[in-house]
Design a binder for these strands. Structure first.
Lengths: 252, 252
DNA sequence: GGTATAGGTTGACGCAGCGTCAATGTCAAG
DNA sequence: CTTGACATTGACGCTGCGTCAACCTATACC
């Protein structure tokens, strides 16, 4: 005994379109096809469909489901892998939610990030000594000239970017992820690109900072409490340093 | 002064492809286009791009971002709405994770759901009295005959579906969502479709059960501890009843 | 001036998983 | 014979770009 396409669709709680799709991609073929082209499905097909839908509800992709159904053995293994991915997603969402919340708070509290005047209170000369000491007076002079030469809009854009980057670093550090994982490495990449925009950094310019400079910067973030504060304190700065070091080791 | 497309891409930490995309969909036009078709961007454009990327990192969709940037005012409101959606997503993920975990446990512990013999221990006659009392002896006889007439595969499929449904109900109840929300109502819909497959239910068959039957069933789940156990106990059953009642009020 | 090289342009496909027409054939019932 | 329900095969749409492909341009060095 077999059912029409609508019948099993109803029986399994899905739609005929879905069944045709599954047929097209080879995930579930009808047990019989009439001379008129009509699809008919029997019990075996129904059982398979049920399994498919079960796994789909758990969030597995159709290719993964197909694999599970063919091998028969490693269903649990596939689910464990999937479970890991789900948890990652959840963490990503948690961090995003935190970001949104702090952003909302910032917008309601202060003048909000989108506002025009956000340069107040920023004095880049406060880092003068450190920069001169570690990378020479010339490096500082260059970057100082660069900064003074920027228009107001430029400065705003640059700071906005810096602040967002710092926020993301903090969120990442608090999220408890690995400094050498993909997430953190993506942040390190952003950090690298951001530095690239500052002339006067050793090796700076289009090619980006040198390995030594990049790693040394990470050290400084930890060593200097003024920098550490930007990244959520000591723990945050250490996370940033670890991520930067890992990035440098791989890419520079 | 303006930059080439690669320049701002680097400055903002994105790609030229993205910028072309934003131009195509009207989200961010270049400030100037050379006679050769090259795109050039100035500070204003850079600022706008930065805002776009900031909002994008928070998870907003491009149309939503466009809206925020035009209206200028309701950025916080848009973010609050987005925040709600993010939390929903997070809850959905949490429930999915819980489902995956219980499924893994079931597969490792018992013979797993995919196994063949899972009809043991199910005795549908245990509900005989209740059914006869509430909906008449004929209703029971019909559904009994239907069940006995099913093949082994049919019975398996039916039970698998029932069990998954119950699991999802439990997860939903524990997830703390509203019984009349979209999520729970989708489950009620599945429950309705599932009942549809059982002849002998009042109004059953292709059209599905009647409103009275559907609501009455929900009551029974709460009243009878044997049913309640299927849905994770008293609290779970009450959640199911509430969801079914809401569903019936709207759709039946 | 020639040429190597980097960077620019406009299409257009691909991805995940179907929803949703569109145009048309089939089956059961009145 | 007509009507209506259900079937078929395309094919576009959605999200946000990544990734070729095929073809100009700008810059720099010889």
């Amino acid at each position: 005994m077999d059912w029409s396409i609508q019948d099993i669709a109803r029986l399994a709680g899905t739609t005929s379109r879905t069944l045709r799709h599954y047929d097209n991609i080879g995930l579930l073929a009808p047990s019989r096809v009439g001379s008129n082209g009509y699809r008919y499905y029997d019990q075996r097909a129904l059982v398979r469909l049920q399994r498919i839908l079960l796994l789909r509800d758990l969030g597995l992709g159709l290719p993964a489901i197909a694999e599970v159904l063919e091998n028969e053995t490693d269903a649990a293994r596939a689910l464990r892998g999937h479970h890991g991915w789900l948890r990652q997603e959840q963490q990503r969402l948690a961090r995003q939610i935190a970001s949104v919340e702090t952003t909302i708070a910032a917008m309601e509290g202060g003048e909000m990030i989108m506002a025009e005047d956000m340069l107040d209170g920023f004095d880049h000369t406060q880092y003068r000594e450190e920069v001169e000491q570690r990378w020479g007076t010339e490096a500082y002079a260059k970057s100082d000239a660069w900064w003074r030469g920027l228009s107001k809009a430029d400065k705003q854009a640059w700071m906005e970017r810096q602040r967002q980057l710092a926020r993301d670093w903090i969120a990442a550090a608090e999220g408890g992820i690995a400094p050498d994982g993909d997430e953190a490495q993506a942040l390190a990449q952003r950090h690298f690109d951001w530095l690239r925009g500052i002339p006067g950094t050793p090796g700076g310019g289009s090619n980006g900072p040198t390995k030594e400079y990049f790693v040394g910067l990470g050290e400084m973030y930890v060593a200097d409490p003024r920098f550490a504060a930007n990244y959520g304190g000591q723990a945050g700065a250490e996370f940033v340093r670890a991520a930067m070091a890992a990035y440098a080791a791989r890419n520079l």
